Simulated scan of single mutants.
Amino acid sequence: MNKQSAAVGIWILAAGLIILLGKLGVFSFIGSVFWPILILIVGILLHVLFFGGIVPAVMLVPAGILTGSSLLLMVGNWFGWRSMRYIWPLYLLAIAVGLYEYFVFGISRDRALWNAAMGLGALSLLLFAITLLWTWGIYLLAVVLIGFGIWLVMQRPRRRRR
């Protein structure tokens, strides 16, 4: 057997394996589970390109947004999309992170940029807290009422001294 026919045989074997894995749903599963990692890779690549001196500092804004959003998309994809009803305000936090990175590593230290980043971050965390209280608040209220009731029952009446 010569080298050329061995190489052709390896290519035919690889093609057959790829077709078989595709028909078994391996690539579909990998694509449906790990697609947010592609967005994460783009965000990290933009960070690397900035710190390597290839792209300007303004590229940190989409880099921070893509990196933060991909992490939230991973949570939704891996733990169920119903979790988005709790973590949706954190997308604003991803924008705030991108703006903050641009403020820290950019050339100009514009105070408006810092204010926008802090304002969006605070709004994001406030909306996240409101969302958690809105959805889990009734349980918190129930626990507080139970605790207060136990405290009232356990408290002994004080005697008056004459």
Rank of each mutant, 00 (worst) to 15 (best):
G121R: 05
R158V: 12
S69Y: 06
S69K: 01
E101G: 05
F50G: 01
G119E: 05
M118S: 08
A57R: 07
W35T: 09
P56L: 03
S28M: 07
A6C: 08
G147R: 09
L17K: 02
A122N: 01
I18H: 10
V144Y: 00
L45I: 09
S70E: 02
L113K: 05
L93I: 07
G137H: 00
R161Y: 11
A96Y: 02
W114P: 00
A94N: 00
G52V: 02
I10P: 04
L152I: 12
I12S: 15
K23P: 00
P89V: 09
R109I: 01
A15L: 15
I19V: 15
T135W: 04
L46D: 02
R158K: 12
R109V: 02
F79E: 12
I30E: 11
H47K: 06
N77K: 12
S32G: 13
L17P: 01
R85E: 09
L45V: 11
L92Y: 08
Y86T: 02
G25Q: 13
G64A: 02
I107P: 03
Y86D: 02
I107K: 13
R156C: 04
L13P: 01
G106R: 04
A15I: 14
G25R: 14
G76K: 04
S28A: 12
L24H: 09
F27V: 11
I95G: 01
R156H: 13
G64D: 01
W114S: 08
I130L: 12
S69W: 07
M118Q: 05
K23L: 14
L24G: 05
L125M: 14
I138F: 00
G119P: 03
N2A: 09
T131V: 09
I87G: 04
V8L: 15
A112P: 00
F51A: 04
F34C: 07
N77L: 05
I150D: 08
L99F: 09
A14P: 04
A6E: 15
W88S: 06
G22R: 10
G52N: 10
R159P: 00
V153D: 03
I19K: 08
R160Q: 10
V58H: 05
G121W: 05
I12Q: 15
I95D: 01
L21F: 15
I146Y: 04
L140Y: 00
F29R: 12
F105R: 02
M118V: 13
V75W: 09
R111D: 08
A57T: 07
F50L: 04
M74V: 05
F50K: 03
K3A: 14
F27G: 12
W81R: 14
V48T: 06
G64Q: 01
G149S: 11
W88V: 06
K3G: 10
G80W: 07
A122W: 00
L123P: 00
M59T: 10
F29D: 09
A6P: 03
P89S: 12
L123C: 08
L92K: 06
T131P: 01
L38R: 06
L123I: 13
V104P: 00
V26Q: 03
T135Y: 05
P89N: 12
S108D: 15
S5G: 03
G98V: 06
I107T: 13
L127T: 02
M154E: 11
I44S: 06
A57N: 08
Q155D: 11
F51C: 05
L123N: 01
I41Y: 10
